[in-house]
């Protein structure tokens, strides 16, 4: 089942196109990695999918998924330097979209938040203030919040930036497990091509336009991929 289909999506800032006529489909259960250089429009595309920026052209269709069933980890979260909020408060705020108009969180949501904090190893800092955490810890808190927000689709914009190698490996494992065992569809923006190829079943290579979209196996055969892998080794 097609969860998202994008057709000829164009998004620009002040007349300049950041995303040009990009088309791709996301099937349920997919693990799509979006790769590409800095400024190639990856984050802009993600924001377009989430409805944070309106596309100028093209259509984005969601099938069998409502906006309040999406989890999102932004690339940058501009949060005021001295914002008073505990880790627990931030994580559980991800459950907000399941409440609708109902006030307060129920036991189920508190347990859910506790469970996600455990998965990301932040249970023992849950009383701490978010602003006092290291960059990597903050990233984990925001990831836990994103996990709280969804059981269907996870949009991660460079989730491993700022994480140490152990945490990075853990995160890839965790996301792969969520994808395989719970059937959560994953869309991950990443600069880590090796992991993208290792975990993703589909690749979207952006260069403002679509440079490649298809299965990972096909991507491996392209010259573009070989060149990029070659540059690494």
């Amino acid at each position: 089942m097609k969860l998202i289909s994008c057709e000829g999506v164009t998004i620009g800032y002040d007349g300049q196109r950041a995303v040009n006529k990009v088309s791709f489909d996301l099937e349920q259960g997919d693990y799509l990695c979006i790769v590409g250089e800095n400024g190639s429009g990856k984050s802009t595309l993600v924001k377009g999918l989430l409805g944070l920026i309106k596309p100028q052209e093209g259509s984005i269709t969601f099938n069998g998924i409502a906006p309040n069933e999406i989890g999102y980890l932004p690339q940058q979260t501009v949060i005021q330097r001295d914002f008073p909020a505990s880790v627990g408060e931030v994580v559980i705020s991800g459950c907000l979209n399941r409440r609708g108009l109902l006030p307060f969180y129920s036991r189920a949501e508190k347990d859910r938040a506790a469970d996600k904090m455990k998965q990301l190893n932040i249970t023992d800092i849950q009383k701490k203030s978010y602003r006092d955490l290291s960059g990597g810890q903050q990233q984990r808190v925001l990831l836990a919040r994103a996990l709280c927000a969804t059981e269907k689709l996870l949009l991660l914009d460079e989730p491993v930036s700022g994480l140490d190698p152990v945490m990075t490996a853990d995160l890839y494992q965790l996301v792969a497990r969520l994808n395989q065992t719970q059937g959560i569809t994953v869309l991950m923006v990443s600069h880590d091509l090796e992991s993208a190829i290792k975990y993703g079943n589909k690749i979207l290579h952006m260069k403002t336009e679509t440079a490649f979209f298809g299965s990972t196996a096909d991507y491996l055969k392209t010259e573009m991929c070989q060149r990029m892998m070659g540059a690494k080794i």
Binding site: L52, R99, P103, F104, A149
Partner: peptide
């Protein structure tokens, strides 16, 4: 305020995330 406390927290802390996840 009390009824919408959690929503008010969410839009105060991170409006973009709140919007992106369907609130």
């Amino acid at each position: 305020y009390v009824l919408f406390y959690n929503k008010i927290f969410a839009v105060t802390f991170d409006e973009n995330f709140t919007r992106a996840t369907g609130t």
